[in-house]
Write a protein that binds this DNA or RNA. Sequence first.
RNA 1: GCGCCUGUAGCUCAGCAGGAUAGAGCAACUGACUUCUAAUCAGUGGGUCGGGGGUUCGAAUCCUCCCAGGCGCGCCA
Length: 555
Amino acid sequence: MKQDTVEIIRNALKGLKNRWGTEALPRIEVEIPRNGSMGDIATTVAMRLTKSLRKPPREIAAEIVEKIKEQQPDMFESVETAGPGFINFRFSREFLLKSLAGLLQKGRHALRTDTGKGRRIQVEFVSANPTGPLHVGHGRGAAVGDALCNILKAAGFDVQKEFYINDAGLQVRLLGESVFARYRQLTGNNVPFPEDGYRGAYIESIAKEIHDRYGDRYREETFEECGEFFTGYAYRMMLAAIEKDLRDFGVVFDRWQSERELYSQGKVKEALDELRSKGLLYEKDGATWFRSSRFGDDKDRVVIKQDGEYTYFASDISYHRYKLQRGFDTIIDIWGADHHGYVPRIRSVLEAFDLPPDKFRVILIQMVSLLRHGEPVQMSKRAGEFITLREVMDEVGADITRFIFLTRRADSHLDFDIDIAKEQSAENPVFYVQYAFARISSLFRQASERGLGSGDTETGEADLTLLSENEEISIIKKLFQYIMVLEGAAHSCEPHRITYYLQELAGMFHAYYYKHRIISGDDKLSRARLCLCRGVHIVLEDGLGLIGVSAPERM
RNA sequence: GCGCCUGUAGCUCAGCAGGAUAGAGCAACUGACUUCUAAUCAGUGGGUCGGGGGUUCGAAUCCUCCCAGGCGCGCCA
């Protein structure tokens, strides 16, 4: 619908090119007017041309309108200039009804777009340290990342979802040490608990599991002797727990990349060698530095420390180089907002490896504050006291949690009130949308009992021209805005736009349902209206699918 | 000190890639259930878009300065 409109405008502009004597045509942008009475879709192209043509925008708009009318597009009922130089289009009823019929025939396939053109995108998200359970912040990252990937796929991109496992550093060793210390307590042969060790209860349960299985076998050994066992055991358990939490949250990754593997496969050394050959590494004060300042970073960064150890940044360099080697056109990293200082650094790396700057995007996820009865829940990571994603999921449910995570832009703070989330009330927008879907499902059940079909064109054989109420036409228009919203969400990497759209569509449906009877004594009209309901049903289901929320048949 | 993010209705937030008269939900108030699911609907009030300057045909949106809040500024991970 958008594409068709743009095409018609482009044709008109081409037709006017000679008269205007211009070479390049401007980008044709269409938008949905704020006020529906202005039109269904509008373009500002005339105003954009005013500078190069040195003519008043209204005059240009009038010329374009005239040219468009020469094409006699049956899509539109009217095309007119308005305001400072807008061109407003109003879709014809025939076109809208034909589009609805198309949607019913093709189903969700009609809702795909190909702005991605199969380009390959890699999205890395969550990437939590495997040293403890996922917390709510990770959950938000997971919800945003997963929804974004669904959206990008629906927009025609070839997407890979990846989780990067920081399994090489000190943190994982510290996890092993913490478990070891707890284990020793169980054997009655205490060792000091590591400073900065992990103190959560999950550490104790891992220690207990080891003790249950192996008894006092490691009672007398030092951590140097059996640390590998403890670290490996604890790490595998944590990773398995993380994977399970994510799966239960509805998030499944295509690939898990281990940091340690980057080392063992020599990729870190390779990456640094390449930088060195490009003259981007140098030695100073006994350390090796990367010239990130050459690419806009504040200062150069150390990659190999004085003691000969690699920094965390070194493996990150190799990781991002490896992403590029795997042939992705675009790299998207989703991080907690507290890591924003890292952006220029990684950007430098990708530029050093010749990725154009616009092919790398970072989405920063702002903090989630958990509330209960409006009061903040105290959390202390050091003491291991924090609410996990698992707890929230178990208490309020995955659907609600995911939806709420997507009711805000990723980069704005989110207050998550557990009590309000649990309440099945009007305060809870999830139900509002799901209820619209369930309501329609219920209509279909009743319709089929009465032999009316359920709005499928095959069984319905409905006469769509019976759809003549204002609300009906408005809903049809809204259905076809879905694709524009999808494209916008993909372009801007903002999944929350889908969430807002769904609330609007659900709202329009609820109002329509209340005002007009769907299944009435008039079978023909009932069939037509069921078709409209089917359209809404399809779009709601698709949109909920994108944000990873279920579409229940009953509530 | 430097950098990034945020500041829009009483509250929580949208506002799409500069566009037309700045929106929604909640709260408040007034109404609607013998009805296809009231987890719903109709209506009312509510704004100096943090502030100043600039760019332009046009700014909540872009630039700049200031104010307020948050987060970062390691040879930690």
